[in-house]
């Protein structure tokens, strides 16, 4: 079972978010866009690679990505459902 803490640590490492602590990323914080973590389309591709490499879950559809991958909570739920 993957936790949001596991995911956040992998995102911080994989995306090079060197100045952000796990505790600073809320479970319901938007990953993309101006109001949350501020990630962009390049990070989105990186996240799909991280999720596949670290958790063995493939993301095949960008449509899926925009809904399910909006927050750490929704992303973890997707990973656990598809693991």
């Amino acid at each position: 079972m993957v936790t949001t803490e596991d995911l956040k640590m992998k995102l911080i490492d994989g995306l090079g978010l060197e100045d952000i602590e796990v505790a600073e990323i809320g479970d319901e914080m938007e990953l993309f866009g101006d109001d949350g973590l501020g990630l962009d389309s390049v990070d989105a591709i990186e996240i799909t690679l991280i999720v596949e490499k670290e958790f063995g879950v493939k993301i095949k559809d960008a449509g899926e990505q925009s809904g399910v991958f909006s927050t750490p909570n929704s992303l973890v739920a997707y990973i656990n459902e598809n693991k």
Binding site: I45, T48, L49, I59, K60, D61, A62, Q65, S66
Partner: peptide, 26 residues
């Protein structure tokens, strides 16, 4: 397509006669 994932591009790139305009990122 508004947002492409590598998996999706891989599907399109298998179609014969496709010229893909992309970046080194992909």
């Amino acid at each position: 397509k508004e947002n492409f994932l590598p998996e999706e591009l891989a599907i399109e790139a298998q179609v014969e006669g496709t010229l893909i305009v992309t970046t080194p990122l992909f």
